[in-house]
Design a protein around this nucleic acid. Structure first.
Lengths: 99, 99
DNA sequence: TTGTTAATTGGCAAAAAGGCCAAATAGAAT
DNA sequence: ATTCTATTTGGCCTTTTTGCCAATTAACAA
């Protein structure tokens, strides 16, 4: 058991993914766009934050390929790209439940 | 689809869990103690950080009941308390792999 | 008791993350 | 072309996180 460069890189990469998920607004986004794609404006209004802030949250998820956007007219509709992350959520509930 | 207080609280709680996991050192700890319990000093030496820093990382995981410690002599041996979080890891690999 | 080792805690400074405003872009609509 | 509307980007400030050191606590050892 040692912390070599390979392992270090692996955990660094994983931590980045967890960081992308470690914000209530971003978890809400995932929940919101899992069935129905939504625009930046819609999402910002529902959550009640500035649209620029929402845009940045979406960018973080997009960079990790967790969501993807499709341009329609001058809107961009975002939807969940990796349904796999929903398993994270159900697992999270189990973990929280055990406390 | 709305961001009411109930949902807000749910995502806040989940985000806290993800935050606890969102650090390479803490992910390494989980990996390290999943089969074999280890002391604070051992872990700090393997990772190469100050023992006080390691103690604080362990405290974060302990507060979320992800790990638990057992006192033997004047050592505290930590081990994984919730094997369920390992599913997070394998799922994370899948998500990262899709990029 | 005295000394040694393990672990935690407090404090501080550096780094990272979050959120708003304002400005810039990009399109659509008129 | 001009005006709106949606989104992104830059800047700035505030909050949070991280990590070291120093001091403290706790428990074993002699």
């Amino acid at each position: 058991m040692a912390m070599n460069k390979e392992i270090e890189k692996e955990f660094l990469e994983k931590a980045e993914l967890f960081k992308a998920l470690a914000h209530p607004t971003r978890l809400f986004i995932i929940h919101a766009v899992k069935d129905k794609s939504m625009s930046v404006k819609e999402l910002s209004e529902i959550v009640g934050i500035d649209i620029s802030t929402m845009s940045k949250h979406l960018d973080i998820l997009k960079k990790h390929k967790i969501i993807e956007g499709e341009k329609v007219k001058n809107f961009i509709y975002y939807r969940l790209a990796i349904p796999c992350v929903l398993n994270f959520m159900s697992c999270a509930i189990k973990v929280i439940g055990k406390k």
